[in-house]
Simulated scan of single mutants.
Amino acid sequence: MSEFAFPSVETNESHLNPGMLLRDYFAAQAMAALIMEPPWMEGGVATVHALSGGFESTDDPCDRFAFAAYKMADAMLRRSAALANTERKT
């Protein structure tokens, strides 16, 4: 089930606006970090390249950043779910 980042409630004056998907919010935050990283790191591999294993090349270099951002967002959602399951057990 998809969670929403900023859900709002329905009122008499407006229609329900479920907000942005949490996955999209996490990807946007990851994208901001990825594009600010210098193109080099110690060891010579930028995070965007390290995260883009499995990426199928396209003509648009921005696609690599989007792929890496969503990969990071998916990892954040998995970790969040795992922590929630652990908390329920304690």
Rank of each mutant, 00 (worst) to 15 (best):
E10H: 03
G54T: 10
E56P: 00
W40F: 15
A27M: 06
F67P: 02
A84M: 06
P18S: 04
A33H: 07
A46M: 05
D59P: 02
M36N: 15
F65P: 00
D63M: 09
S80V: 01
M20L: 12
E56W: 00
M20H: 00
V45T: 15
V48A: 03
F55H: 14
N85W: 00
T47S: 14
D63P: 03
M36W: 09
R79L: 14
S52A: 15
F4L: 04
L34A: 08
D63V: 01
S52I: 05
T58E: 02
L22E: 06
K71V: 10
P39I: 01
S14W: 02
A66V: 15
L34R: 07
P18E: 10
G44T: 06
T90R: 15
A68K: 03
E87D: 14
L51C: 13
R64Q: 14
D74W: 04
Y70W: 10
R79V: 13
A69L: 01
L83A: 09
G44H: 07
R79I: 12
A33G: 11
L83F: 12
R88G: 11
Y25D: 15
M36P: 00
G54D: 07
P39D: 10
D74G: 14
G54W: 06
G44R: 06
F65C: 02
M36K: 14
L83Y: 10
G54H: 08
E10N: 01
T47Y: 00
A81G: 09
M76E: 07
N85L: 12
F4H: 04
P7V: 01
C62A: 14
V48Y: 01
A69F: 04
T11C: 04
T90M: 08
A81K: 12
D74Q: 11
A27L: 06
A33V: 14
L16F: 10
P61D: 13
N17Q: 10
V48D: 00
S14T: 08
E87C: 09
D59V: 13
N17C: 03
A32T: 12
E42V: 12
T11K: 12
A27Q: 04
C62E: 12
A50K: 07
N85G: 14
L51R: 13
T86N: 05
H15M: 07
S14L: 08
F26G: 00
T86L: 13
A68F: 02
E42G: 04
E3I: 01
M76P: 00
M41I: 01
A32F: 07
M1A: 11
S80K: 13
A84S: 14
G54S: 10
P38L: 04
N85Q: 12
L51D: 02
D74S: 14
D60E: 09
A50S: 05
L83K: 09
F26E: 10
G53R: 11
A69Y: 06
K89A: 15
M31D: 06
F67V: 02
A82R: 05
D59R: 15
S52H: 04
A66E: 13
P7W: 02
G53S: 13
V9A: 11
G43I: 04
S2T: 10
V9L: 08
P7M: 03
R64G: 00
A69W: 05
S80M: 13
I35M: 14
F65W: 12
G53H: 09
D60W: 08
M1Q: 11
S8K: 11
P61V: 05
S8C: 03
L21Q: 05
A84W: 01
E42Q: 11
E3Y: 01
T86M: 08
S57L: 11
N12E: 15
S8D: 09
P39V: 02
